[in-house]
Amino acid sequence: MGKKFIKDYGCVVIFFIICVIASIAIPRFLSFNNFMTIIKQASIPIIVCVAMTMVLMTGGIDLSLGYMIGLASIACGIFIKSMGMPIAVGILLTLLIGSAFGLLNGICIQLLHVPAFIATLGTGYIIYGIAQIISNGETVNHLPEAFLALGKTKVGPFTTTIFVSAVVCLIFYYVLHKSTFGRNLMAFGMNEAASHLSGVNTAFVNLAVYVISGVLSGIVGILLTIDVNCAQPTMGGGNYTFQVITGTVIGGANLYGGKGTIVGAIFGMLTLKVIANCINLANAPYYFVDAIMGVIILIAIILENVKNKKL
């Protein structure tokens, strides 16, 4: 039992170990306000960590995710502010764009057999280009109060953003761990041929994860826009994608497919934000975070190889 727990929730253990070390090393770390900051910082990227976990489980990857956030940001800004659409319509359209590009990714990968790495890198740049073109390189500021309220309203100590994140996690916990879709997704990631011959609709699974990734990127684009009260095409971006992949990998998903949990997605990103927080509190240059992320992702993959006895 203990062994299985560590295997499944190793990231939770790592999270607490890092928290304990941080509390000892940095006195200011252990405070209610600091924890609220970490949770707030992690809540939005956790949403796309969930998406990335599912994509990695298929053995694929979505490098367009960060750029999709940028397009979603500027698109919802233009829809709601510049074009004056009703907020609900603007949000729906934004998510529709997200799902459309997700579908494009899925089609390239599943039907046209483009390797996921290249397919999503390509669509990522297409998306980035489109975001720049429609924005004319400018940002959209001073968004309607009602729109901002969607993410900034306070309920107790939390903002609504955190609730959106929690709802997404709950929904996908059910989808991934309790539904037949999740089981099919796992089987597909572990053995595509056997799954197909067992009646798993492999094409649907593979398309669906990229559509989910597109929609969740859209949600994150909107939430980030609300957070900074400014829609901009450079929101998200390649660095954001990398951060999300790192968080997901810390959470136990690997790049070979078949493995991943929602709990892992949550605690993976929390761990990453705790590390960033420590660097911040220690007054070290922020770029340490980038370097550390690079180290983490390499170590995580090497550890995975050691665990699989490849090394």
Binding site: M186, A187, M190, N191, A193, A194, L197, G258
Partner: peptide
Amino acid sequence: KIEGLVLPM
């Protein structure tokens, strides 16, 4: 092993 079972499940 290849087409019958999902071995890691």
